[in-house]
Amino acid sequence: QSYDYDEGSETWPFFMLAVLCVILVPLTIMQLWEALAGGEKDRSSQHQQHVLGDLSERYTGNDVRTFRAKYAAKKSKWLAKRNLVIIAGWTIVAYLVQHIGSNDAIKDAATLLFDPYALLDISASSTDREIRSAYRKLSIKFHPDKLAKDLKPEERSVLEEQYVMITKAYKALTDEITRENYLKYGHPDGPQATSHGIALPKFLVDSSASLVMIVGYIALLGFILPFFVSRWWSKTQSMTKKGIHVKSASYFSDRLFNFKPSQVVTTQLMIRWISHSEEFKLMFPALAPNIFETLLHDHINRKHSGNLQTTKFRIVAKSHILLFGLLDIATTFRNLEISNAAIDTLKALVQAIPLSPYSQILQLPNVDAKRFVEGSVDDIRTLGKLFTYDDAKIGKILGIEDATQLQETLTVASNIPYLKLIRAEFKVPGESVITPLSTPHISLKVLVRSAKHKFFSPNMIPDEMCQDEQDFDSLRDPFASVSEQPKLPQSFAPYFPAKRSGCWCALVVLQKDGKVIQTPMLIDRLSFANLSQDFDKRTVKDLDKDFNPENWAVGTIKIPFSQPAPEEKGDYFFRVIIKSTEYFGPDLDFTVSMAVRE
Amino acid sequence: LNYNSNSKLLEVPGCSEDVEMNIQQINKLTQDLVAENNPNFTPQPHDDSTSMIKKLFESGLKNLQQQKMAEALKSINLAIEMAQRKRAPWEAFAVQLQELQFMLKNRVDLSLIQGKFMDGLQDLDFLQNTGLNSSDVFIRKTDALMKLKQYELARSEVERGLSLDPTNIKLKSLHIENSRRLAEYNG
């Protein structure tokens, strides 16, 4: 019953040391890694550097810049806090080590430990011969008969003691039984008296401090633990796996569930829906949804919102995740119209441009919208069409006088990544046809091209450039080859409060009933190498001479198919929609047929 | 929920639009029931309203024969309005749906001939929404969208039409024509 606590406080320092090291060592390594590699991690991460990112930084307005600066600051403070913990931790460790070193109780306890190699002062890996010779040397020195006569009795006893130990050590290493004992119990004489105790320092358990302990325990178990657990639990409970608040998700589901065909789907409707999200209410409890709606519309129309400017930036930055949540729910309800509208709304918020036939043009910087819409002689609605004119004419059409600004606008326009479909087919890894009930995926070969590039027909890209390597691991996991492609670079979105690199959303629609059949797949890895090509449609005249397929990087997109191929043979048609979340224009919308054969 | 006795209508002050819509439906139903003087009415369509609608529609077709398009459109619109108003909510849905779809199909052609592409397009949308997926709906819809310069939408329409009816010549030629327009549209 009477536990003997750690009288000489010889065990709890080790326990504390162990606990601290377990926490501190990985933390310190991580911290060092962040501090050293952290910088270049941002720089040299897979994001390919791209001219649009730099231009986007150049065109970012001051209020967005200050907003970003404020937001970014938070991160570094957090870093400091972690440093603090590390420094404190290591000082405690230092103190403990010093305490252990100085504490003699620990020292003599240490001598209790029987270590034959130390006694014979030979290395642990020495052979029997060395052990024997070492033993012989030492025993001659320490043998009682050999000891000098004039020793004092207590010296003599120490030496005799020493001799006994040496003999024991020798036996522990050579004689079978004692070695057996030593290996099993760590001591040749068999199991030693081991003292079991609680590694708690004495001062903690004697009567006076025990009250503090009890109170400590009650506080820990009664308040602190429940507090953290409940906070963690409410946090996890309140967020869906897509990262939006449960209440927002249920609101969106309710809107979709009660959606009437007589309602018209527009971006205004999407904005109204996300304005009722729980996130906004939590961020700004004092504001009503219609205020959020107005702010979002202000953002899209690039109107200043006065003192609600920061509020506007925060909800616009948040709307990104909300629209993805809404998109996910809309695809779960198989509603294509709302899925499309959600992505269009995201584009409108990213580019701060309302959805209109001229959005592709108006998303360019320095465009004088009024002059463009009135002035445009024949209907120019796409960048491709814009690039059929020469630069000067384009300047006039867009209403840009200043040459450098025009140059920058043209750079942006020619670097907006358009997708061109080269090959599209259903594929089952390792099969040449789609067999019934197999697990196909949609394999696309696309070319990232600029709007100024001359158009050429897809079959000018030879088949061998569109083959996937048929080696084993690509058969085992066909999606591995996609992740070798570089990540998308920072997008040109100077009005968006946060830096972003965007993605394409791939929707798969069943042509029979026009409904979405699976949740969207996000494409965030594609090489933009082709954009650096000139290949201007105004200069390139005949394709055969100037066109060389080798110069073009073919991108791969693989869309997993959510359900197995149908049972019976036949042709099934699916519509694949690949919509960019960043820019107006670079969307793909085509039909792929699945020919199910034996 | 409170009931207004003299106007015999239900109302729920300050309710959501979904509840509001249900209340309207109930009110409409009760009004028609109260107005119905024939005690043993059946879900079969009221034959005198059918004949009225038919007469109006016929006159529309007559105008069509005489190449008087505007009048034709007007009298077909009247026929549709008549159907919308006269038919009681309990008259067989299948009959009302067919009747409305039939009249709209004619109205679509009249609108397209007269260049009212947006009108034609919305009627075609309605026909598709109510389950009419025949090829000629896709043909007309693609044509209307091309006339409205919505080439992307036209392409997805015609591709869907071809998915449902791969051998349709008209759809194929529309697809080629639209791809050409798209290439031009994209410069």
């Binding site: 007589s262 209109s356 | 139903l29 008259e91 009302q96 409305l100 009627d123 949308d125 109510t130």
Partner: peptide, 22 residues
């Protein structure tokens, strides 16, 4: 039938919205 009527009425609204949007 009433839902059908509502969808039919929506044709006018859709015409406005789309002509304005396009």
């Amino acid at each position: 039938n009433q839902a059908l009527k509502r969808r039919f009425q929506a044709i006018l609204l859709r015409k406005e919205v789309y002509s304005e949007q396009w």
